[in-house]
Write a protein that binds this DNA or RNA. Structure first.
Lengths: 150, 150
DNA sequence: CCCATAGTCCACTAAATTTATAGACTAAGT
DNA sequence: ACTTAGTCTATAAATTTAGTGGACTATGGG
């Protein structure tokens, strides 16, 4: 399971946007988050087309969130630049059909997506800029670290 | 978040292997699961190099599981052909370092991976061939379907 | 014991996607 | 008018994914 650089950049740029007073220039986001400027501009355009950010041109221009940071989840951001949250072989889990022994696999992918959603739909940009992640997510991290120290 | 065709094929081939008496020829797996034969051979080679399957050449050759189906998880299979279970920009979550407002993002990716693991480390090939998925996974599916019918 | 055959093994090519860049254009402020 | 900065299209480079051809090897028949 892989998350693209584009999605990672988008999340970082949005986190930065959420904690800077608007409007914010693309160049500032690029240097703050170490993202190639031109690539970032493409991403911001995707985000704008999805209605997550708004912008203004000109000397005093820049970008800002289209709605409150608490009303934008990471899932929204990722979907804006990558399409569906979780897909297998370029298709949605439910549109795959498996024959023979692989039958149950479709259900596994559905479960997998549900668990991906459980994280990405919960975390908002407000969580990001406050630094306090939702309790359910924090618990996952604690468990993961406990696991790791074994 | 995307799972490659290779990983999907590998899981399907292993499910088939787990429910056929050995040795099984690559061609049989390919037709049973509708996978390009030559591509499947590459995948089987990866699986062999990871120690998940064994094989024999010659007229009466074929492939079989290197250990019991209940001791091989989908996570094992995916790691064998794709590398780390969940990675971002080609790197493991914990090796990324984020500055400024994106700081908490690293933890989000860790949580995400934990939740991916919660599914893939639980499901074994024995579950696949019996058709009975683990209870925790079944619950996720029920919730996902309830969600969908809204 | 050697040959023929079936089938695995490996190196390589082709296609697709992702990542990144360049430059022309448009709007906003001074 | 001039400068600054977003918008958009095209395209180039790099990486990943998908797919193929042919060499190699064990087995069974003669």
């Amino acid at each position: 399971m892989r998350l693209s650089a584009k999605a990672d950049y988008a999340c970082r740029a949005m986190a930065e946007l959420a904690s800077t007073s608007p409007p914010v220039k693309a160049e500032r986001l690029a240097t703050a988050q170490n993202i190639p400027l031109k690539f970032l501009e493409n991403i911001l355009l995707d985000l704008k087309h999805s209605g997550l950010v708004e912008s203004q041109r000109g000397g005093d221009g820049g970008y800002w969130l289209a709605r409150d940071a608490s009303a934008i989840t990471l899932a929204d951001v990722i979907r804006a630049v990558e399409g569906p949250l979780a897909y297998v072989r370029g298709q949605r889990p439910e549109s795959l059909d498996y024959t023979g022994a692989a039958g149950p696999l479709r259900d596994v992918w559905v479960a997998l997506r549900a668990n991906v959603r459980a994280v990405l739909e919960e975390v908002t940009l407000a969580h990001m800029s406050s630094g306090a992640l939702p309790a359910s997510v924090q618990e996952l991290i604690r468990d993961a670290e406990a696991w790791h120290s074994h």
